[in-house]
């Protein structure tokens, strides 16, 4: 790639070059990401699913609610391409709505938790000593409660309906600690390195060092953790719904659809498999995109390979 534009400097020299214009760095990242085939395919698939989830309900004849005109328990085909439930839902309509709720919850949770978690973890790792100990005790408190169990207990005891926003908040409150812990571990070893010392000697403030030096160097682990967290959030929401404590009726989510079809896996498979497959595909694409981003962003791996 770079041989054509810069014949006298290899990619290695460019990656190691000091103080190059920031745009070039960004361009390199974008180019590396575009070359990552699984990530690009995943991005396309995810775009299609997003359109399906957010535009689909406007175009499709049936929504996720029960309708008297819908015949019960019809196998896929004809007016209802994915069949109907016993109560009279159109499965395709349910699927669109379910995917939409899932995506909204996952994105909200990931953004909230990653921002809070990485700043918290980096600050704890950088300051060290008593600050670190105190901040990590707080993290520990959130870490020792199993996520699904905790969010299920909280939203399960709240009687009378939980919206996607409430579900996201409950999940986010308990999931930022994981990111904080990962980031702190990375920062602990980074802060002893020369470039941090150099920045400190040049008079950089702690926050400048954290935001401009430590966090970019921890980008790889943060992105791996953040994408894992998107998938975790999706699965958490699904798990909550499966236990009956997530988004409540008449609204629907993919996990709830699976729970409703739990006993129908063999008798009416069109109810059981579509929501599960869609969940798996969403999580799969998100993880592949994260993988592509990591390869594109991690400067150390880049130096070694490209």
């Amino acid at each position: 790639m770079s041989e054509k534009t810069l014949p006298d400097t290899g990619p290695r020299a460019r990656a190691e070059a000091v103080g190059g214009p920031e745009r070039t760095q960004m361009q390199m990242i974008v180019r590396r990401f575009l070359r990552h085939r699984p990530a690009m395919v995943s991005l396309a698939v995810l775009a299609v699913i997003t359109a399906f989830a957010f535009l689909g309900p406007h175009l499709w004849a049936w929504d996720h609610r029960v309708h008297g005109e819908i015949p019960p328990s019809v196998p896929p085909g004809g007016d209802h391409p994915l069949g109907t439930t016993r109560a009279g839902h159109d499965v395709l309509g349910q699927l669109m709505r379910g995917a939409q709720q899932t995506l909204k919850v996952a994105l909200t949770v990931s953004v909230l938790s990653t921002v809070v978690g990485s700043l918290w973890g980096a600050a704890a790792g950088y300051y060290g000593g008593r600050t670190d100990a105190l901040m990590m005790r707080v993290v520990d408190v959130f870490m020792i409660v199993p996520l699904l169990v905790m969010v299920a207990a909280i939203s399960g005891t709240v009687r009378g309906g939980t919206t996607w926003w409430a579900v996201s908040l409950i999940i986010a409150v308990f999931s930022w600690a994981q990111i904080a812990r990962v980031v702190r571990g990375v920062v602990l070893s980074l802060r002893e390195q020369e470039f941090v010392e150099a920045a400190r000697a040049a008079g950089a403030s702690p926050w400048w060092i954290i935001v401009r030096h430590l966090l970019p160097n921890a980008a790889g682990p943060i992105i791996v953790a953040a994408t894992l967290l998107i998938a975790v959030a999706i699965l958490l929401e699904a798990g909550m719904s499966f236990l009956g404590f997530g988004i409540q009726l008449p609204d629907i989510s993919l996990g709830r659809m699976i729970d409703d079809a739990r006993t129908a896996a063999t008798t009416r498979p069109w109810l059981f498999y579509p929501p599960g497959v869609l969940l798996v595909v969403i999580c799969l694409t998100v993880n592949f995109i994260g993988d592509g981003l990591r390869d594109a962003l991690d400067p150390r791996q880049t130096m070694e390979r490209r």
Partner: peptide, 21 residues
């Protein structure tokens, strides 16, 4: 690994259960 990571536990359990049957 990615597939396992993307698999909802309860859905996979349901599949395993019907596969076992």
């Amino acid at each position: 690994g990615f597939l396992a990571l993307a698999m909802p536990t309860f859905w996979f359990a349901g599949i395993m259960q019907s596969a076992g049957v």
